[in-house]
Simulated scan of single mutants.
Amino acid sequence: MNYPKSQEILEEIKKAKKILVNCHRSPDADSVGSALATYLALKKMGKEVKVICPDNISEDVKFLPHSEVVEKIDFGKFDFGQWDLFLILDSGSPGMATGKREGVLPEIATIVIDHHKTNGKFGRINLVDENISSTGELLFSIFEDWGVEINKDIAQNLLAGIITDTGVFEYPLVTSRTLDIARALIDKGGDRQEIILNIFKNIDFIKVKFWGEILTRMEKDEAGFVWSAVSHEDFKKSGSPASAKESAASLFAPIVAGTDFGMIMVEEEKGILSVSLRSRGGFDVSKIAEKLGGGGHLSAAGAKVYVSDFDQAVLKVLEAARKVVNENQKK
């Protein structure tokens, strides 16, 4: 048994007939892949399952098996009363799951399964392992505990989550167990090349051009980090490319010599500054995200800043980052 709580979760699943599974806001491949793998596992158990998300999934994850079942909903209008159980995956907070700032969860039994170190453990049952690379890796171990037979479609979805959330096995939480699981999923039919091609080598030209805008604006702070910020007006002029901030953060924020981390800020909606942070080494960027009301991991984190004035929002992020740097230096 990998996780004693796996059995408790399975008992709740057995009692439920109709089960909801979420993808979080602006879902990445770990979110979508984990949700789809869970959907397929639950269908094997004879359950009625619906996968819900506060946003549309992006084009780069639509190659995943059964991605068409993901349904965009408004959490404030959806009828949760028809459902028995809600599995909340890869979401460190209610707001991440619902896509709403207030993050109010529906009146329904909830089970949280996640790997973010900043998870608030807001479910009735919480299985959170912050020492694991991805929710995809976590679910592999849970499925082992449940005795779920992993077929080709489940393998592809879990492998996509692992490859994405590890930066193709780059990040510190990658262990020999991670690699063993990836090998097992490939043996079950997971296609590593298809995943890498679709997620990392299938970039819309508009997004590539927008990366140029981000790099043009990039500055190096005396506190030891780089940052770039794009206003809503400039984001719209660039075509409002989906997930451009996250991908730019992964590509450019952690690579500058003489820095500890980097931050990419984009005002994707007017008055809402979205921030992606990436660590270059051992600097824990989740501490900055937490000060801004967000969360994540040591190597990668994010937050949303709700300030109407763009310059003031950027200043708030910079001040939070400098404060965490100063706190670290005093230790």
Rank of each mutant, 00 (worst) to 15 (best):
I88V: 14
S134C: 05
P106N: 05
F140N: 01
V69W: 09
P65M: 13
P94D: 06
R101A: 08
S134N: 06
G95K: 07
R124T: 11
G136P: 02
I88L: 07
F140Q: 01
V51G: 05
S58Y: 13
I73Q: 08
N131C: 11
P106F: 06
I113V: 09
G147P: 08
L89I: 10
K152R: 15
V148Y: 05
N56H: 15
V104K: 15
E102R: 11
D84N: 12
K121Q: 14
I111T: 05
G92Q: 05
G92V: 09
G103K: 09
Q82S: 10
S141P: 00
G76P: 11
V70A: 02
I125R: 07
S141Y: 15
D90Q: 08
G95A: 14
S141D: 13
L105H: 07
P106M: 06
G92C: 10
R124F: 14
S67L: 08
L64W: 03
K100C: 10
I73C: 03
A155I: 08
A109Y: 14
D55R: 10
L87T: 03
G103N: 10
I162V: 11
E149V: 12
I52P: 00
I57H: 01
N56V: 09
N56W: 15
L89Y: 09
K152N: 12
Q156D: 03
W83G: 00
D60A: 10
D153H: 11
K50G: 06
L87R: 02
A109E: 09
I52A: 01
D145S: 12
I125E: 05
V49T: 02
V69E: 01
D145T: 08
I163G: 00
L89A: 04
